[in-house]
Design a protein around this nucleic acid. Structure first.
Lengths: 144, 144
DNA sequence: ATCCTGATACTACGAATTGTAGTATATTTG
DNA sequence: CAAATATACTACAATTCGTAGTATCAGGAT
């Protein structure tokens, strides 16, 4: 449940997964109930051609890494194996951004803070205001 | 000059480089003038046994990736090749933390801000105050 | 001048990661 | 029983990084 490499130049889930892994997780997160490998393959296949085997193998790796849960019954053709994401997408993203953020902060705190505030100045002044509110709330909670 | 993978579970320069790469860059950054591969090997070898070839190969990769500059003259035994880091360590760290921070902010801005402020509440309240100052300075500069 | 040594360079291999392909298994259906 | 099919297991290619083997080529010793 722990991503080792964060891909700096990618976008979205591709920051945390390989491209096929990301598409598969997206499908898993889009389905409330468990979903069969075949179904996942059909859905991914709509975007770009992919064999069932490729999907199957990568799903099993995601399972081994702890991102997916597997529920199997039966064997052979009649086998039913459904997969579920272990975390919601929100939980996953939250956990990963937390890991990356806290790691960065612990060693490069002041640099990171400056980069962040600069980034917000350009693109998201509202978030700047939220930061101030959050800090003020903290401080008044600590020293009333 | 652009790191692709950020290693979430590592420390220090190992976040941006492999372990041997990191040790080599550290040596390069510790020497003001250019330094020969042999000398680098001798220095790294004090920490843990490493062959000249290993150091040489990894240094050439760092050169190909643009992190090192090479100055060669002569050939064969008498050859002198000295290596320099292209950026200072400070420049490098600044650039990389900026890339990671801005990438995170652009997609997960509010999450990252929350994680960061939470992290600072525990470990570095002074930095929290600096953030407020920086934001205030910005805002008064914009809306005088 | 010849040979050996030593600094550098080039090539190759092993492990890990991720995408892809081939084959095996076993059961449901015809 | 045989064919088709959902799943599983194994293998291979490309990339990255650490490591090892070998080649090159000038300076010094003989």
């Amino acid at each position: 449940m722990n991503i080792k490499k964060y891909n700096v130049n990618e976008e979205g889930l591709n920051r945390f997964f390989g491209p096929l892994e990301a598409k598969i997780m997206e499908v898993l997160w889009s389905s409330d109930d468990g979903i069969a490998a075949k179904e996942v393959q059909e859905l991914v296949n709509k975007e770009h051609p992919i064999t069932f085997n490729a999907v199957m193998t990568v799903m099993n790796r995601l399972f081994e890494k702890g991102h997916l849960q597997k529920n199997s019954q039966g064997r052979g053709r009649g086998r039913i194996s459904t997969y579920n994401a272990v975390q919601t997408k929100e939980q996953f993203i939250n956990e990963q951004t937390k890991a990356v953020t806290r790691g960065l902060m612990s060693e490069f705190g002041d640099l990171v803070v400056n980069h962040m505030v600069d980034a917000l100045e350009d693109s998201d002044p509202e978030l700047l205001a939220k930061i101030q509110e959050k800090i003020s709330a903290m401080q008044s909670r600590k020293q009333p």
